[in-house]
């Protein structure tokens, strides 16, 4: 395998999707949900379909998340999810997949673990990047050099409320990909059609970065995925997977359906 691939699995995943005429498909599931072993099964199922997997580290106070991810995180924590068990899960997933694995959590778990220690454990377990919704670039002064030294990519978020100045600051701070939040709000599956603010936001961000830009919050099915894929380099889906698992539905089938929606208009 060419060294560039192992050095930056994230960029490669976006490049590969583009070659296939698709936006990259990014899936999120909280580690340890609903239990450690079931999580591993579900994550492996998702890895058959997605281009990048976001591994959520559940947190007691997820103020950027809607009820679906809140409840899933609570369930995982009740069933014993810890930072150690999350890294164990990542190691297992890494042993059978070369797809990029990105941790999504909040800042306090990382502070509690120790920033340098957390970054070292990311390297040791095969994590490619980090997304921290409550850590804007302005507050990442201690984390950023630790991540850079270890080649752990950082993704920051832009939102429909972001001013041109903020979009520039965030776009320049990202090293993995840029995460654009589709609506003002928290995570959660929504009805489609709320994407009117996204194209201008992406256009503005592209003035400052060549990194791929993924759009998340609210994507739940093939149609909503298609709407995002029309304008973005990547489509993020989280709550819809949890809703399906809660209903006892078929995770693989939903992933397959949404993946069809990631095809770029020709």
């Amino acid at each position: 395998m060419p060294t560039t691939l192992t050095q930056n699995r994230i960029q490669s995943a976006f490049d590969q999707a583009k070659l296939e005429g698709r936006a990259a498909f990014i899936g999120y599931l909280p580690a340890g949900y609903p239990s450690h072993n079931e999580y591993l099964q579900h994550a492996k199922t998702l890895l058959e379909h997605v281009d990048l997997l976001e591994v959520g580290m559940p947190y007691s106070d997820p103020l950027g998340d809607g009820p679906t991810i809140q409840k899933a995180g609570e369930k995982a924590l009740q069933n014993g999810a810890t930072i150690s068990s999350m890294f164990e899960s990542v190691k297992v997933l890494r042993s059978s997949s070369e797809k990029p694995l990105v941790i999504m959590t909040y800042y306090n778990p990382i502070l509690a673990w120790g920033e340098a220690r957390f970054m070292d454990d990311c390297v040791a377990s095969g994590v490619d990047g980090l997304i921290l919704p409550d850590l804007p670039p302005d507050e990442a002064d201690t984390l950023r050099p630790l991540a850079l030294e270890r080649n752990i990519k950082l993704t920051f978020l832009i939102a429909p409320t972001s001013t041109p100045e903020r979009i520039e600051i965030v776009a320049l701070a990202c090293t993995g990909f840029v995460y654009a939040v589709s609506v003002t709000g928290v995570t959660g599956a929504r009805a489609t059609g709320a994407l009117h603010e996204v194209p201008a936001m992406l256009e503005r961000a592209r003035m400052h970065t060549t990194l791929p830009i993924a759009v998340g919050f609210g994507v739940s099915n093939r149609e909503s995925a298609q709407a995002v894929a029309d304008v973005a380099d990547g489509v993020v889906v989280g709550s819809a997977f949890i809703n399906t698992l809660e209903r006892g539905g078929d995770l693989g089938a939903l992933a397959l359906e949404i993946k069809q929606g990631t095809r770029k208009p020709s």
């Binding site: 103020l63 950027g64 800042y107 919704p133 409550d134 850590l135 804007p136 302005d138 507050e139 920051f156 978020l157 832009i158 939102a159 429909p160 409320t161 972001s162 001013t163 903020r166 965030v170 939040v181 003002t184 709000g185």
Partner: peptide
């Protein structure tokens, strides 16, 4: 300027809120 009292304080919030806080 970052809202800090020595190491305390700051703005650890989703980006959506940053412009509103400014």
């Amino acid at each position: 300027a970052r809202g800090r009292y020595a190491e305390f304080g700051g703005r650890y919030v989703p980006e959506t809120l940053i412009p509103a806080l400014q």
